[in-house]
Design a protein around this nucleic acid. Structure first.
Lengths: 250, 250
DNA sequence: CGAGACGTTGAACCTATTCAACACTGGTGG
DNA sequence: CCACCAGTGTTGAATAGGTTCAACGTCTCG
């Protein structure tokens, strides 16, 4: 019945090995939470410290365990942040959108990265040495406060995740994860709120501490109930209210 | 066999409704990670902003959901930080030792606390309005960097917890939790490394996303293997190496 | 001394995983 | 251009790890 969905609503405009124009760089930097409110001059100085690099989908930006000496910022595209368990299974910590930072904030703090970063779409990534960034923070104390606020939010988010892993059954965890992804990466579309990133069952399993099979089962059920629409590597939220009700109000 | 353990090695020197002397306050503040390296004069100014309060074991310092407007620091005693799930079960996020802070770093960020804090032992707690603390950070930028570093560590720790919840079986999670507690709150004793805080099976269940029954079973097994010694409300690590081996090297 | 909290142990049950087989899709190379 | 094939998704059945329910023992405190 509600089976025939279109091929893949997620647009993957694959350009050349991604890079961004100077204007884009400055625009991105100025829109970054912590760089907002910086004088144009200071911003240009900061900009000069950043290096840019392009990545193709699936390409690895850094690997857990390698020496952590850079701070990265997503200028264009989406980036997966993942941890690796000894058993071989992965944990997908987050999917970062343009404007978000990752990597090592401070030098020497963790000597090595404890997560890996991988481009999901063609991406342009800016990066700076952690030491250099530390100097920037020294010179612009207001930036440190902004960064503090962001870290605080991430800590909250991580704690909420612990709460969910501890107390919610898979079905709810998946519903919740879909809603979060929708809020962050959603794009209005005829099918509903399309999660605008290639997203496999396994990705969702890695976000919910589950397995691709279980995710598939739950998603089939959601689809039958008209809550979502989904196909190969994509998901759209059709009935957000019902999904929200399922996770239980908070 | 190895059943006869002593009553309760955990000392709970219950004084009057706890308070601390002026010298202790200054000493505590000066030893706080972020206040380290502050001029004595600045430290006294900061000290003046703090208010002190005493708590009895089990007494609640603040509750999740109430307006978040203060930052707290443990001066003396131990404090439980916990989240509450809709299902009624609790998550024990951490047990804080003297010198650690909790509560609200920044005003308005989360309008309300999203965790609760409760004294585990008789405790003396210093606190300051978040707004006031924000001013302190403004005036002493180096403190913001320190705080940033600490938040970073906590974020890492939370992420590691997500990893463990996602990939380790209960037995390992419990072993790991015991080791962490031992490292943080351990006191050398004849029985081994005593975790110097009243700690029930339920507490451990709340730290490992499990149940008191399961914790009891696993702990019995650990005790039979000579890994730990334990009784009512207390645990000591007897063979740290074996316990470490069990969790799997990292 | 009694009562309530804490801890232990057993057995039934249930959720989600695991293993396995099969179907669909899209991209690649012949 | 078509056929093939690897990656992805679906579905079923068996299994296991942990929870739940329940009963009982034990300690501590008032």
């Amino acid at each position: 019945m509600t089976k025939a969905r279109r091929k893949s609503p997620v647009q993957t405009i694959s350009t050349e090995p991604d890079f961004c124009s100077i204007e884009l760089r400055l625009r991105i930097l100025s829109r970054l939470p912590f760089f907002a409110g910086l004088s144009p001059k200071a911003l240009e100085a900061v900009n000069a410290l950043f290096v840019e690099a392009g990545y193709q989908p699936g390409e690895v930006i850094y690997t857990a365990g390698s020496p952590a000496e850079r701070l990265f910022v997503v200028a264009e595209g989406k980036v997966k942040l993942l941890q690796h368990a000894a058993t071989g299974n992965n944990i997908l910590l987050d999917i970062l959108a343009p404007g978000e930072f990752f990597g090592s904030l401070a030098p020497l703090k963790p000597a090595t990265y404890l997560d890996s970063a991988q481009a999901v779409t063609p991406a342009c990534i800016l990066s700076i040495r952690s030491t250099a960034f530390q100097h920037v923070l020294d010179q612009h104390p207001e930036l440190a406060l902004k960064t503090l606020a962001i870290l605080g939010e991430r800590l909250q988010s991580a704690n909420q995740r612990v709460l969910h892993l501890s107390s919610l059954p898979v079905e709810r965890r998946i519903a919740c994860t879909l809603l979060k992804l929708g809020a962050k990466l959603g794009r209005r579309q005829e099918e509903g709120l399309l999660i605008d990133v290639p997203l496999s069952r396994e990705d969702l399993a890695d976000m919910t501490a589950s397995t691709p099979e279980t995710v598939s089962r739950v998603m089939s059920q959601f689809q039958a109930g008209g809550l979502i629409a989904s196909g190969r590597q994509w998901v759209a939220i059709v009935d957000q209210a019902k999904l929200q009700a399922l996770v239980g109000e908070e």
